[in-house]
Design a protein around this nucleic acid. Structure first.
Lengths: 166, 166
DNA sequence: CATGAACGACAACCTGGTTGACGATATAGA
DNA sequence: TCTATATCGTCAACCAGGTTGTCGTTCATG
């Protein structure tokens, strides 16, 4: 717990190790909170943090519930429930697939596309705000370093269960 | 969505804005996943990502349920439920407060303290692993930059509800 | 043409969050 | 001193999102 310990012969730790995850989560959270504050102002008060990831996973051509579940790392049933709620909010629509009558294709509505486009613009603006604080080069270094440590990991979307319970 | 756009006259964006939150979350998640993989090996297979934050919030002297809820940004009822599950897992214990019979003081058990101490050591080790990849200075810069953009924000623990639903 | 696999949906259940209500206790004021 | 007011912890009801298991339908394959 003390901040002046050394770690198996390497340099002094400098910062305690537990600060890193907290700052990463805090950074994520502040970006997402800012995004949704702005999104609410621009006609999307119902959007939730989850939705952006789901929209990305659906993609421009649409997908099926089972495929969406696979991309998000959750069960097809969970994906189905998420789709239900997005349908209720008017962000997506289920269309029958004429070539395979078992499956339905989930596509973004105009409202959903609008949210996606606005989100991209807002994220660019928020990134620019970070660039104003850190400088362009430091921000690029931060992104590069995060890429270096996270590699090509994919982001599972099972956050609630992952975080809390078994 | 294209990565060569410019943002209102500033430098070329370089990276699309939505990569930043994804990488931040990915970094957080990989640290926490590594922590819990190691924690499970060291006798704490039941520990969940949430618990570490709760342990920190309880602190060495213990707290009450209502105060814990305030620190974590959730209701006292939610804090009470979390305490219940922690008691069941043997991480904390409720003690009566002789000076105020309304409240009970929640304190870490030996098992809980063990988890906290081991977590701190593992986090230091994980940070050292990042330092091996990025270099000590780049890592320090990354931490400093995250501090600069997140400031003295406090981390609310209402993750499940925050992320997904109303 | 029969078999096996995949889709979407339904049901039951777990966790963790919320609000509202309640008895018990502490505290401040008339 | 007696009486409001506020806080603590708990209980109950509810919601969101996750899980597994099951099932009828439909496609694909041998």
């Amino acid at each position: 717990m003390s901040s002046d310990m050394t770690v198996d012969g390497r340099q002094p730790a400098g910062a305690p190790g537990f600060e890193l995850p907290v700052r990463l989560l805090l950074g994520f959270r502040s970006l997402i909170d800012d995004l949704h504050a702005e999104l609410a102002r621009q006609g999307h008060p119902d959007a939730r943090p989850m939705h952006g990831f789901v929209f990305q996973a659906i993609g421009p051509g649409g997908t099926t519930a089972a495929e969406l579940g696979r991309r998000l790392g959750v069960s097809k049933q969970a994906a189905g429930k998420t789709i239900d709620s997005l349908v209720k909010l008017g962000y997506v629509r289920r269309e029958p697939d004429p070539r395979d009558q078992r499956q339905k294709i989930v596509v973004l509505t105009e409202h959903g596309i609008d949210a996606l486009v606005r989100s991209a613009a807002i994220f660019d603006e928020l990134r620019a705000r970070w660039a104003d604080i850190l400088g362009t080069e430091r921000l690029a270094a931060l992104e590069a370093d995060l890429r270096a440590v996270t590699g090509d990991l994919v982001l599972p979307l099972d956050i609630p269960g992952w975080f809390g319970g078994g």
